[in-house]
Design a protein around this nucleic acid. Structure first.
Length: 421
RNA sequence: GUGGGUAUAGCUCAGCUGGUUAGAGCGCCAGGUUGUGGCCCUGGAGGCCACGGGUUCGAUCCCCGUUACUCACCCCA
C-alpha cells in the first residue's frame, strides 16, 4: 500500500519546533493586549463571493489560488485565502460600527492558497492578522506600523527592512494609472509577455516585474507618490513625520504595490533575510473602500498580516534563544517492578498537586529509567527502591547536581506543589 | 503554470570508472556483576537502495519513464 504523506504544501509542526511557535504566540498575545486589540475568531471557510468581491477578481489569489468547493447544499465555499475580507464581513454583520472607533481586532489561524510550495511558502500556512476599522487618521497608520515594529523587536529580530509606499485613492489613482499605462504602452514591444497582459488588467503590477528587460522601464516609470491628490499626499507626509519622530527606520519604495485590489493610500511590507526568496514576513496597508465593496457604509480601515511560519523560520535562522518547554519536574522510577503500584500512585498524587511528573513504564532497569529521565530533561527523579518500598518514601535525585536524599511522599509533594490558576 | 536539483536506516549522509553478506555518525534498545543518568566501551534492532521498464553475465551505481520531495520564476505571509 502506498504510504500516506502530508498533502503537498502542508507540514507537521513537530514537538521540537513547538517552543518557537509558543514564543511567537506569546509575543503576539501580549502585543495585542499592549495595543488594545480584541480577539476575533472567524470561520475557516466563507462564501466564495466574499473573497471574489473583497480581494478582487483580477488578483492572483482569486484567479488561481483559492481552495473552492461546492458543499452538499450546492453553495460555493472557499477556504480563506486571507483574513481581511472575513473581518470586515464580521464587522458589518455584527453591527460593530456602533462601537467606539476605531474598532481594533486581531485574528490568528490557518490560511489557504493553492500555490507551488517553496522555502517559506505553503498551501496551508498561519497568519496573525490585525485590523483597525473606522478611522482615517494617519496616526492610526502609524499605530499599526508601530505594532509591527514592536512585534519584531519583541521577537528580537535583526536585519529587518521596512518598506512603505502610498498608492493613492479613487480620486488620484485613475489619473496615475493613465500615466503609467501611457509610459509602458510607448515601450510595449520591449515588455515581457506577462507584463503585456498586465498592461490593461493591472498596470501597477508592471512596477513589480523582476525581469531584466522590464526592470529599467519600471525604474523610469512615473511614481505613484508624485501623482497623489492633496489628501493622500498630506496623509502620507504626516505618517512619515510620525515614523521619523519615533526614529523608526523605513525605506520609501515606489515599486511596492501589493497584490490585493482593496488597498488605498498606505501600503507596507517588512522583509527578513536568510529565509529564502520569500522574505516578506509582514504585509499590510489601508483599505478605505473595502467595506463599501462588501455592501456596507463607507468605512476606512487599516491592518497587516504576518506569516507565522516565516517568523518561526527567522527565529530559528537568527538563532534567537527561546524558553524550553515540556520539561517534567519529577520522573518517578522504581527499582523493582513490584513497586510499580506505588509509583503509579505517587505520580498521580504529584500531578494532582499540579507538578509536571512522568512515570517510567515497562518494568525496565533502573539504569534505563534514569537514562530516560535524563533524555526527557527531568529536573528530579523520585526513585522507589528496596528500602523505600512500603514506607511511603522515595530517594529524590537532583539530576543536575547528581545528589540525592530520602524524602517522605508528603514532603516530596509539598516541595514540588505548583499552584494552578 | 514554467525551469533546475535530489530520491540509500527514524535523522544527516558515504558507497571509487557497474562486481557478490549495503556502510558511518546521530538517535533508539540492551549490557559493562552487588540499588543510579550524562562521558567511554561492547552488542542489538532497523533498508524490496522511491516505483516501473531498459542495457548487461551481473545495476544502489548507466539510460528512459513515473511519482514524490526540494529550490527558483510568477505572486505573496
Amino acid at each position: 500500500m502506498k504510504k500516506f504523506q502530508s498533502p503537498k504544501g502542508t507540514r507537521d509542526v513537530l514537538p521540537a519546533e513547538q517552543k518557537y511557535w509558543r514564543q511567537v504566540e506569546q509575543v503576539l498575545d501580549s502585543l495585542a493586549r499592549i495595543f488594545g486589540y480584541e480577539r476575533l475568531d472567524l470561520p475557516v471557510f466563507e462564501s466564495t463571493a466574499l473573497f471574489q468581491r473583497g480581494v478582487g477578481t483580477g488578483t492572483d489569489i482569486v484567479e488561481k489560488e483559492m481552495y473552492t468547493f461546492t458543499d452538499k447544499g450546492g453553495d460555493s465555499m472557499t477556504l480563506r485565502p486571507e483574513f481581511t475580507a472575513g473581518v470586515i464581513r464580521a464587522y458589518l454583520e455584527n453591527g460593530m460600527a456602533s462601537r467606539p472607533k476605531p474598532v481594533k481586532l486581531w485574528s490568528y489561524g490557518p490560511i489557504f492558497r493553492y500555490e507551488r510550495p517553496q522555502a517559506g511558502r505553503y498551501r496551508q500556512f498561519t497568519q496573525f492578522n490585525i485590523e483597525a476599522i473606522g478611522e482615517m487618521d494617519p496616526a492610526l497608520d502609524f499605530e499599526i506600523m508601530s505594532a509591527a515594529w514592536q512585534l519584531f523587536s519583541d521577537l528580537k529580530f535583526r536585519n529587518l527592512c521596512f518598506q512603505i509606499n502610498s498608492i493613492g485613492c479613487p480620486a488620484c489613482r485613475p489619473g496615475y494609472m493613465e500615466q503609467l499605462k501611457a509610459h509602458f504602452r510607448s515601450h510595449e514591444k520591449d515588455l515581457c509577455g506577462d507584463c503585456r497582459n498586465r498592461l490593461e488588467k493591472n498596470p501597477l503590477r508592471l512596477l513589480d516585474c523582476k525581469k531584466e528587460t522590464c526592470k529599467p522601464l519600471a525604474d523610469r516609470a512615473p511614481r505613484a507618490a508624485d501623482f497623489l491628490c492633496k489628501e493622500c499626499a498630506d496623509h502620507f507626509e504626516t505618517l512619515k513625520r510620525y515614523l521619523d519622530s519615533m526614529a523608526m527606520p523605513y525605506t520609501v519604495n515606489p515599486r511596492l504595490v501589493r497584490g490585493l485590489d482593496y488597498y488605498t493610500k498606505t501600503v507596507f511590507e517588512v522583509w527578513a533575510e536568510g529565509i529564502g526568496a520569500q522574505n516578506a514576513v509582514c504585509g499590510g496597508g489601508r483599505y478605505d473602500g473595502l467595506a463599501e465593496i462588501l455592501g456596507g457604509p463607507p468605512t476606512p480601515g487599516i491592518g497587516f498580516a504576518a506569516g507565522i511560519e516565516r517568523l518561526v523560520m527567522t527565529l530559528m535562522h537568527q538563532q534567537i534563544p527561546v524558553p524550553e518547554t515540556g520539561r517534567p519536574d519529577v520522573y518517578v522510577a522504581c527499582q523493582d517492578p513490584k513497586a510499580m503500584p506505588e509509583a503509579v500512585r505517587l505520580a498521580t498524587l504529584l500531578r494532582q498537586a499540579g507538578t509536571p511528573a512522568v512515570l517510567g513504564f515497562g518494568g525496565r532497569s533502573l539504569k534505563a529509567q534514569l537514562r530516560e529521565a535524563d533524555n526527557r530533561g527531568a529536573r528530579f527523579t523520585a526513585i522507589i527502591g528496596e528500602e523505600e518500598l512500603g514506607k511511603q518514601a522515595v530517594q529524590v535525585r537532583d539530576m543536575t547536581k547528581a545528589v540525592q536524599e530520602q524524602l517522605s511522599w508528603t514532603d516530596l509533594i509539598t516541595r514540588f506543589r505548583r499552584p494552578r490558576d
